[in-house]
Design a protein around this nucleic acid. Structure first.
Lengths: 200, 200, 200, 200
DNA sequence: AATGAATGAGGGTTCATTCAT
DNA sequence: GATGAATGAACCCTCATTCAT
């Protein structure tokens, strides 16, 4: 990577970092592009060399951050040497939930903006250096020790269930704190898995 | 209600209607207070006699519209003469889903903004003439033919599951159209109910 | 006219005056709306209460200023008690040319922007208080002591001839100063009139 | 011409072509230098190696395109074997008018920007490879079978008359379509010529 | 209570120009 | 000579809010 290429990457990453920091602290609506470039220390026009507008940088951030969540969770799972598929899914959910508990501003950012559409998008549009959600998905459905009925529906339901229920529980402890809610969530996830997965 | 009282109600309702129509067609971010008052045919200053700002009117609309959804569903349920609690819950979910299918702009509006917080809020702050979600909730938990373990958690999970999964499925048929998704949703709801409800 | 109405008129006129002054001194391209409102001493937003954009205020100014030119010329003509139609036309042309010599910034502004289209427009859209070019045109063609063949073509040719030839001659004395050019212009105008007008 | 020389000429011509195409389709104000270089496929900085700014390239284009008009018209005239001076002038006017009818975007571009000043300029500054309007002018005034009184004034008046009257007539058929206007224009041109030209 | 003219900060975006490579 | 990333001033325009009427 040439010096110039490197410089561009630094600028872009700096913009992404600044945007993320501002989006999570002030919210997207109240963050202006002026804010982002000021925090990045680059000129206003530079922003438009890398992103179309505020929503473009938001979508790229969501894909990136969501991918990171899954990637970290999977790495931990492998380290823990878990091989049973249902256990793997539960582990990943739990790990992600824990990451979000530790990083509530990330939760604020992701949960308000994550949708299945953007998620699917991240399969294709992922930046070159992004760890893609696609890999995890593919490793999951291509296992030969299980037969999965409609894996996409299963994942969709699990993801939506987890991400929608955890939001208010983690951030506001409403209706109950997350630790109290977890057993119910995992019980439901197990049920969903049972419905879709058959060991061979 | 005096003539003056009535006039005020007309103005306020007109503002609410206009705001709803604009929010659902252009989105909240792109709707200005100027747009709302213009559509309502009242003066700009008048808006501030009734609402604090755009987000105030949005929250009131969400409570109101969400309440309506439940109210309609419950009325239909009574008409259908359904008394078994699990069946009641399924019926209400199905009815609401159908309402949202018929009214996708309402779905766009609600789903992007509905959160447990605002929902709970609607229990207290409901406009005087609003049918409150609280009533339905109370009727549900005070039945003497069932024992419900953590009814709030149960409802929370069901509501979040339904509202989060239906959004992308209804609007974009992603990952599958809602009719194909429904069996999986209802199966999961039944599981959740079984976990919480014991017939006496 | 109420106090409020009067205040609005003052603001609008102030904007028109400021715009005219800036357009003639710096040119339209280099005049920004910020410049105009600053010179007027009103807020930026106020501009948009009265005009759509820079080109809107320009067109209104052109109509207005062109109308004034004709109005002054006609008034002088009446004062001079000239009744013969060809002499009237020559008189008006001469008077307008003299006005433009005296007011070269007006010439700069008008000549670069006057087109038959905008001119015709001014017949209809004239501000209420504008003296309309239409009146002069109508008085001219409805005389019963002359028969005019295609009066619109005649006027079009005279107006275009005069306005296009005077521009460079007055401002840059190119190819010759206006006083030297005038005989040729008037000779040509007389020829055009002869071609179109028959005394009865 | 060396290979390098040739390469430079290609770049420059490409910039001129792109600019012309954009100026005529979007207008000068809405054409940016970015647009021009993008269309040309050269880098932004390259533009400044050949032109000072947007108005520099515009003036060069006007000279060039106006020169072309005259050059084509004269070639056709010679081909048609017309030798009588008044007939030559009429022929050239008619030919140019026809060229502009066929190429209305060229008319838009030229008419809004052509002025006697730029025209005279083209006599001196003409690009090396341009056919100069000066040649035509000189051939015209140096004939020994006619005496011309003030040839510059004559040409000035004819050019301004034709270019100003044809604009709205060709583009908007206002006040009448060009074919209907032509007899009046030519009649007036003949009158102007008669006034200036004496056969010897 | 109702109006709507006025505000002016601040938003997003463009673009001519520079200069290190 | 050629490049194109970077600049940042300047642009147009919006809009929530106020307040005299």
């Amino acid at each position: 990577m040439g010096k110039l290429e490197l410089n561009k990457k630094i600028k872009k990453d700096s913009l992404l970092d600044s945007a993320f920091s501002l989006f999570t602290s002030k919210g997207i609506n109240k963050t202006s592009i002026s804010d982002i470039v000021e925090k990045s220390g680059v000129a206003k026009g530079t922003f438009y060399l890398y992103f179309k507008d505020k929503y473009d940088i938001r979508n790229k951030l969501i894909s990136h951050k969501a991918g990171q969540l899954f990637d970290i969770a999977e790495k931990e799972m492998i380290k823990a040497n878990i091989t049973d598929l249902p256990e793997q899914i539960i582990f990943i959910c739990d790990n992600i939930l824990n990451q979000l508990c530790e990083n509530q501003s990330l939760l604020t950012f992701i949960s308000k903006n994550l949708s299945w559409g953007i998620f699917k998008n991240s399969l294709g549009n992922a930046n070159d250096d992004d760890i893609s959600f696609a890999d995890i998905y593919n490793r999951l459905v291509s296992r030969d020790d299980y037969e999965i009925d409609s894996p996409e529906i299963m994942l969709y339901m699990i993801i939506e269930l987890v991400s929608s229920t955890c939001y208010s529980s983690i951030l506001y402890e409403e209706p109950v704190p997350i630790e109290q809610l977890k057993p119910y969530i995992y019980d439901t996830i197990k049920h969903i898995i049972r419905r879709h997965v058959t060991p061979l």
